[in-house]
Design a protein around this nucleic acid. Sequence first.
DNA 1: TTACGTGCAAAATCTTTGCCCCTGA
DNA 2: TCAGGGGCAAAGATTTTGCACGTAA
Lengths: 123, 123
Amino acid sequence: MTKQRKLIHQIICLSPMHLSAEEIYFEAKKQCPSIAVGTVYRNLNLMAEEGQITKIETAGQPVRFDKNVIPHEHFFCTDCGRLFDLDLKGIKEFISEQTGMDVEGYTLSVRCRCAECRLPKGA
Amino acid sequence: MTKQRKLIHQIICLSPMHLSAEEIYFEAKKQCPSIAVGTVYRNLNLMAEEGQITKIETAGQPVRFDKNVIPHEHFFCTDCGRLFDLDLKGIKEFISEQTGMDVEGYTLSVRCRCAECRLPKGA
DNA sequence: TTACGTGCAAAATCTTTGCCCCTGA
DNA sequence: TCAGGGGCAAAGATTTTGCACGTAA
């Protein structure tokens, strides 16, 4: 439990967004200029393995990290590009029932417009 | 329509698997040793944009390409690591109904064991 | 002919790793 | 003390791109 690890964990926990490793690195650098990229990645992967954070792997985009360790889905806003939480239940069962396969896991990321971007943009 | 592009398209169409760019490159190299990696990527992306093939983007793994342009899902076998087709209907509606969002698209990849790997392995 | 595609190689992006030193318990 | 973690930098994996030349139409 070094100050670097604590810092990284804190950044993730305090952010309302889902940050990428790079974003976390830049944020960490502000508070601990000597921190190295390798350290950020090492700790991120470690914390994810230990279940303290969740690694969000999405197609074609850098991995992001989530303080919320309760399984849930995510969606990308096609307008602003941000990643949001999506509360979705029963996908696994849906897949199992339709295919008859024993689903071990899955990765789902949805693309749609977030609430903010759906608001009419005032002139 | 150069011979390189035809070759790449043919490799994808003749393969029963879903090949990665690297695999396609090696295969192409056998028949056209002078072909360059850049050419393979360029053509793959071009053909995907034009709708001649499908780009399969999955979390944490290299992009693969599919001759089947009819939308469908894929799953990875957790045993042998191969990528297979998965016929699944109504996922989009399932997501829309549960979330009330206007789903523009999604990426889903499932992890389970393929039929072959589920067979008891003879000694 | 001539514009588009190719080959080559460098670069860009994202992530991991080896190695040696430092630090926290 | 001393082992695990950090810093640095190089390497790895995948993909893109600039440029000059070749080739199909």
